[in-house]
Design a protein around this nucleic acid. Sequence first.
DNA 1: CGTCGGAGATTAAGCGCTTAATCAGCAGGG
DNA 2: CCCTGCTGATTAAGCGCTTAATCTCCGACG
Lengths: 344, 344
Amino acid sequence: MTTLSEVARHAGVTPATVSNVLRNRGRVGASTRQRVLDAVAALGYRPHLAARALAEGRAPTLALMVSSIANPFYPEFALAVEHAARSSGHFVIICNTNEDPLTGRAYLDQIAGTLSEGVLVTNANLDFADLHTTESRGTPVVLCMWERPNEPPGLPCVAVDFRLAGELAGTHLLTLGHRRIGAIVGSKASGIHAARYEGFVDALHAAGAPKGRVKHAPDTIQGGYAAARALLEADPKLTAIFATNDLPALGAMHAAADLGLNVPGDLSVIGITDIQLARESRPALTTVAVPTVEVADLAVSLLRELIESSYGQAGHQSTASVPMRISSAPKLVVRASTGVPHPR
Amino acid sequence: MTTLSEVARHAGVTPATVSNVLRNRGRVGASTRQRVLDAVAALGYRPHLAARALAEGRAPTLALMVSSIANPFYPEFALAVEHAARSSGHFVIICNTNEDPLTGRAYLDQIAGTLSEGVLVTNANLDFADLHTTESRGTPVVLCMWERPNEPPGLPCVAVDFRLAGELAGTHLLTLGHRRIGAIVGSKASGIHAARYEGFVDALHAAGAPKGRVKHAPDTIQGGYAAARALLEADPKLTAIFATNDLPALGAMHAAADLGLNVPGDLSVIGITDIQLARESRPALTTVAVPTVEVADLAVSLLRELIESSYGQAGHQSTASVPMRISSAPKLVVRASTGVPHPR
DNA sequence: CGTCGGAGATTAAGCGCTTAATCAGCAGGG
DNA sequence: CCCTGCTGATTAAGCGCTTAATCTCCGACG
């Protein structure tokens, strides 16, 4: 392994000079700089990131907490985060909590502040107390998808108006003429699904439509499948199903297929998020798109700001209020899974 | 931030003693040990991983190179890798190369050896020369999915008999009675797809069946969709389609649906890998399962061994031959997308 | 009673890099 | 000719942790 000192010796200068050249700091003469660069190239020198992290008192990585990378939304989001992070010179460590707060805490304890200088949190089912602890230890934390722009969570966050997303979905179905609509609501403890469902109910209310049945289900295709079957069994005359997420919505489409129902002829299905699969399913899923890339960008840039300011003003910056960024509004994306009702 | 020294002061001992307690090294008296542990708890001390990495001369992380985490196979694999790595105290940094060898090299240059002490490579379209460079710099590298058990790649690897996978798929279709079979072959430069296709052709040969048409396509649903349409247009009498991967196979099913063909009534479809989606599609996809979890376990444990031995025998261990682990054989998983041919 | 061995601690060096402080020249102004 | 002010470099301390080497007791053994 080539070290800074070896490069320095090879170039006939001191390590400090090499460091200055590499970081564009201090004053270095043109010829010396060139000699150093030559030596770097000749020896194939690569800085030792851990050593640099120690000396600088900061790490070049960000931690991204996700509940499970198996849910296809997270890889998509992670990709966007990684992209944003790379442009600011950060690597991303993806931490799977598996919905387990203890695993989450273990990750936070180990890598926050020592291997990563900032933490990005998605709907990972973490204990807020742990996040506050992390923050108080000096490592900035940003919530990537806060669901209620009007009710700050007490942590820096990027807010997405998920209530509106639910409302848009509901309105779309109502506009098409649906009145018997079943709802599949994610079962996670988090408020994400609640806000979406609220918006959906708001839309029904506004239109004077009946509230309809609700079934809770895990955020998976199979969860949605089972929920949809239960819903259709309870009320065979349902003409539409709203799911608070795309995955269960896809499951609902499968259920319809298995029950011999045509989508959207016999049953309309709508989800929320617009994951890749929504585009690729047959029929393609109508959904309410969340601006994933934008959210990732906002979250990373907010985190970067917090990191910078935490190094700037030694320690606390408590007087400032907790920052919140608001993403652009979710948008309805009409595809092939919804249509005018055709009562059975 | 609490440091080792602070804990030491608080416990009335020297930093060395604290370190010894924390690492279960050296000799420490019972009472002293307890005092140290109390101090650790009282101060909420967490070791600084970067500092530890520097002092130990090794890092607690592994790098996982993937072509794109957007392909659902990789998150599944990454999850298995992460699980295996965690059990050996490693974190995993997922590096997306986006199929770009230069991005891959950038990652290798930056984190191999400084932030991570080992590299796991999936089909990430990397330059083998870069991998050898990384290895020669002292960071062990393991190829996670080498496709030809009989032709070692010159790097440590876990081999999966992908030729056999293709053969199993072909044999299955032939056994059902298919004779007009189209093939969708991944277009990646890598040999992964070639080996699978070879196995498929071997099966046809053995049965004296005609070779059929081939269409190359990217490893996506849409790629498979387009390829299947092209295939069916060229030969409307095709009774089955074999794809070298599940994603294109799913795309082929969509194409069939759009062309009004019933799967498996009019067209049988089979893929390779057995990703989660294969189970969740309608009809569920028949495929040849690759032992993902086993491969991940083998790869991580091989990498760990290489890491240990690289620290053991100072530097080179060149005399030893390049190790290869062979995963258990791929297995046919019959689901609903294949059936006896029903000529149109 | 002198000495030896081992348990239980400490000392100190060093991992590779950063950076504030310092220093050596040297040109120009008084 | 001395002092000032630069530029271009060096010095040296330190980031938090590990670890080989060292030291200090103290009981046991001959």
